[in-house]
Design a protein around this nucleic acid. Structure first.
Lengths: 135, 135
DNA sequence: TATGGACCCTGTAGTAACTACAGGGTCAAG
DNA sequence: CTTGACCCTGTAGTTACTACAGGGTCCATA
């Protein structure tokens, strides 16, 4: 790859993204299609590296692709108020809190279920019993 | 529906399951196909209600369909040791613990990101900054 | 110069666990 | 005898990728 352009594999390596995932992001319109070389290879510049890093970091923090799309749009309108960014982040935080609470409740149930297992036969297994309808 | 057989809609109501989901479970071989009426309607008996309740309860506790398949198989072999049941439940518990830990770490990051937002313009938004590559 | 292997291309299908139709048939009440 | 609620099959959509198949490109080495 000539100059400072990167092939898709190198971009993937630098951003911790699989090649298929990059092509997928391009296909769904999340990540802009780059120029091509004479041999029809995608040629990425520094701006692409930044953009994809932003996407990956957001994914790591659990934002959905739709949320990331909105964040990217906002990030490009540099002189507008960042309220909208804050809203997205706070909504996501609330969702994470909800998930944590759900998992904690679930954990308690699983734990008490397992605690009752005396590991005899299935016929008197407390886990199976706990899963079965009371009727 | 004659006698004490239930139509799919009634079964769904009694077990808190959508009709499409019941048909889906049947299609993937998780939930046995029942007999049919003259008009080709599915006709469910009490055993079906129990089975589906078991499946739903397991789903509510976050077991995957594959895990439930295994649990159902085991639940039917009533004179075998219930060690295998215990193993599935413990594996699931460990996974839930992992997820809780991951979400907690994520929550901390999100929280500190949001805490820094002074809500000025996007140009100096700390959230966007936190998501952007450091380079 | 030929060739081998690493890389790239497109397009499609698979994953989990459903959900949502479209286009029809059945059944009971009025 | 018609209306509306219910049922049937089959297919396609959802999220966020992942995994091929079947080919082309590029570069270093023999």
């Amino acid at each position: 790859m000539t100059g400072d352009y990167l092939a898709i594999g190198e971009l993937g390596r630098r951003t911790g993204t699989k090649v298929e995932t990059i092509r997928y992001y391009e296909r769904i319109g999340l990540f802009a299609a780059p120029g091509r070389t004479a041999g029809n290879y995608r040629a990425y510049g520094p701006a692409h590296v930044n953009r994809l890093s932003f996407i990956r970091r957001s994914r790591d923090l659990g934002f959905s692709l739709d949320q990331i799309r909105a964040l990217l749009d906002l990030a490009d309108q540099r002189d507008r108020s960042c309220d909208a960014v804050d809203v997205i982040a706070r909504e996501h935080l609330a969702e994470v809190d909800r998930k944590i609470a759900d998992l904690r409740a679930l954990r308690r149930e699983l734990d008490s279920m397992i605690a009752q297992c005396r590991c005899g036969t299935v016929a008197d297994c407390r886990i199976i019993e706990a899963l079965s309808p009371q009727s």
